[in-house]
Design a protein around this nucleic acid. Structure first.
Length: 638
RNA sequence: GCCGACGUAGCUCAGCUGGUAGAGCAGCUGAUUCGUAAUCAGCAGGCCAGCGGUUCGAGUCCGCUCGUCGGCUCCA
């Protein structure tokens, strides 16, 4: 007799060892059909596995979040099966589930997206056949024998611990896999192959290049459709497109990966920096600036010449080697070391909007997200060991203040000591402890990435979440135990002895270029009033009213608004349409009525119009919205 | 750097199996003076990314280079 306890506390009793299917069917046939897997005492299992003893069982239905991963894993198998049917000499490697779907890396000839329809058609056949997916376990030696012609699988099995190894079978297809999987292939109804790319076996460039095929899958077609609609929305918000349409920035073949910012883009840029400077001044930072090009000896001292040289632009002048800085820190170290420091000066918060160049590989460039020349909103904070916690906390509070201004949520991740690292155990313990204490004091939950820190110190990464729910790592706080040593930094303590300061690097926007791109997509090009390059556009209804419109413009400009007059001889409808498409937040039409009454009719981007708004009132409200740097576009609503 | 896709007017794109480049929008000129998302007409605009090859003939086919995009990789 086997007693099964269900999540609601009820128990079912079985004479024989039941499978998950039996348990599900004991509840109802309909329910059983929606089950895809089960959790036995917290362990994910296939529905068809036997339950040998009394256990707590939770049946996983298509509605459970865990089910999606299982589905996608099985979808990867269905795809692999289809590929093997079409490409007889293909060799499978690995096929995991990823955030939005799955992929499978396959050793085969080059593939293009034009090949997808026939693979998808084959997949549909497999789905339609509702092939049962069954687990079997074999010994390691049998597994090796089974895969004698599959070098990648052999390598994977070699790495597995001795003992039984599980395989999954569906029809003629068998794959090495931990599982769990769906009961049958019929669940994989809503899937789509998304893209292909090259990928290296074990992510190593020296290994064979494989074909990676990405796909996604959902339990029902509606969800798949929603997902595709989301991708479409993201595509529409693409900052490269918006940047061109809104005349913000451009790229040119003459300087790949190095953006040109246009007049309107620079207004946003300068506004972002003005805000940044204001917030940093309040937080007790000083601003500094160091050169872009520095002598080789500096980079040898910092270690970059040895470790980062392939990414640096170098030049030879007067028989001396120079490098354009890929990071600001070495310059910042020189600045600190340029005079003696007392403990009384610490913490010293030394900020710098630094222009850095990194020679990224040509294939990775991507709009403003991945460039070769960019500005970091860098800061180096020098402090005593007992200031670590307070300073980190200060950075986290500043991070929160700045991101929330843009309506961006965020979460934190702490990365600890990696295998390859410098410094003593004590130093790492002290440094990591400092970060952890600051995080705990800050009070938000954070994720820990063990062993993911830089070799020179632990770090906290800040991941922001944009309006589409996508996350981006922007801010980072890194404790550096290497550079103060290499540059022999010190301060004189209360004891009149020299001490080594603790130093952190931190950025909040990260790369200003990248942050600009993220904001463009976050707002979908509809920048909030305080950032909008043109805050208001005046549209005189006819040519006679143009002089008056320019008077109003002068009035609003004197108040501090960025205003344009569209006094072209064009129809009002056209002017409105164009202003809307340029995402000018406030579209002000001026007709005889407005002139007579000293009012404005105000159209906002949602298309709503408020007539008869007194000019003073309009100016006061927009200025208040700007002053508060509100991220919304509800400008004249309270 | 690697795999795949792509590169035609400022922008979006058409150009069939090779026969000497086309549209819409933007621009310019003129007319229209307009009340909340495109007024009308005319004109101009291209070394078809670059270089080389095949061919009587190349935007179309082939090779190389550059750039862009999606991935891989890297990220002191």
């Amino acid at each position: 007799m086997i007693h099964i306890t269900l999540p609601d506390g009820s128990t079912k009793t079985f004479d024989d060892t039941p499978t998950g299917v039996d348990v599900a069917q004991s509840i109802s046939e309909g329910f059983a059909r929606s089950c895809v897997a089960m959790e036995i005492n917290g362990q994910m299992r296939d529905l068809y596995q036997k339950i040998p003893e009394d256990a707590a069982v939770r049946l996983i239905t298509t509605k459970d979040p865990e089910a999606l991963e299982i589905l996608r894993h099985s979808a990867a198998h269905v795809m692999a099966q289809a590929v093997l049917r079409i490409y007889k000499d293909a060799h499978l490697t690995i096929g995991p589930v990823v955030e939005d779907g799955f992929y499978y890396d396959i050793d085969m000839g080059p593939l293009s997206e034009d090949d997808f329809p026939k693979i998808e058609a084959e997949m549909r056949k497999i789905v339609k056949a509702k092939l049962p997916i069954r687990r079997k376990t074999v010994s390691k030696s049998d597994a090796l024998a089974f895969y004698q012609d599959e070098p990648y699988k052999l390598e994977m099995i070699e790495d597995l611990p001795d003992g039984t190894i599980s395989f999954y079978e569906q029809g003629e297809f068998t794959d090495l896999c931990r599982g769990p999987h769906l009961p049958h292939t019929g669940f994989v109804k809503a899937f789509k192959l998304m893209k292909t790319s090259g990928a290296y076996w074990r992510a190593d460039q020296n290994n064979a290049q494989l074909q990676r095929i990405y796909g996604t899958a959902f339990f029902d077609k509606k969800e798949l459709k929603q997902h595709l609609a989301f991708l479409e929305e993201a595509r529409k918000r693409n900052h490269r497109k918006l940047g061109e349409r809104l005349d913000l920035f451009s790229f040119h073949d003459e300087a790949p990966g190095m953006p040109f910012f246009h007049a309107k883009g620079m207004i946003i840029w300068n506004t972002l920096l003005a805000y940044w400077r204001e917030a940093h001044r309040r937080a007790g930072y000083v601003e500094t600036k160091t050169p872009i090009m520095l002598n080789r000896s500096l980079w040898e001292r910092s270690g970059h010449w040895e470790n980062y040289r392939e990414n640096m632009y170098t030049s030879s002048i007067d028989e001396m080697d120079y490098a354009i800085k890929p990071m600001n820190c070495p310059g910042g170290m020189l600045l600190y070391a340029s005079k003696p420091h007392s403990y009384r000066e610490l913490p010293l918060r030394q900020a710098e909007i630094g222009l850095v160049h990194r020679h990224e590989m040509s294939g990775v460039l991507s709009g403003l997200f991945r460039v070769r020349a960019f500005h970091q909103d860098d800061a180096h904070i020098f402090m005593t060991p007992d200031q670590i916690e307070g300073e980190i906390l200060g950075v986290l509070r500043l991070v929160e203040e700045i991101y929330s201004t843009f309506g961006l949520g965020f979460h934190l991740e702490l990365s600890t000591r990696p295998e390859k690292s410098i410094g003593t155990d004590e130093q790492w313990a002290q440094a990591t402890d400092g970060l952890r204490k600051a995080l705990d004091a800050y009070g938000r939950e954070y994720k820990i990435n063990e062993g993911d820190g830089a070799f020179y110190g632990p770090k906290i990464d800040v991941h922001i979440k944009d309006a589409l729910g996508r996350t981006w790592q922007c801010g980072t706080v890194q404790l550096d135990m290497s550079l103060p040593e290499r540059f022999d930094l010190n301060y004189v303590g209360q004891d009149n002895e020299k001490h080594r300061p603790i130093m952190i690097h931190r950025v909040i926007y990260g790369s200003i270029e990248r942050f600009f791109g993220i904001l463009t997509e976050h707002f979908g090009g509809k920048f909030p009033l305080w950032l909008a390059p043109v805050q208001a556009r005046l549209l005189p209804i006819n040519d006679e009213l143009a002089p008056y419109a320019n008077e109003v413009k002068a009035f609003l400009e004197a108040g501090g608004l960025r205003v344009e007059t569209d006094d072209r001889t064009e129809s009002l409808n056209r002017k409105i349409r164009e202003a809307q498409l340029e995402y000018v937040p406030l579209i002000l039409t001026i007709g005889a009525k407005e002139k007579a009454a000293g009012t404005l009719s105000v159209r906002t981007l949602d298309g709503a119009v408020q007539y008869g708004v007194p000019q003073d009132d309009f100016l006061a409200r927009t200025l208040a919205h700007i002053r508060d740097r509100r991220p919304d576009l509800e400008i004249l609503k309270d």
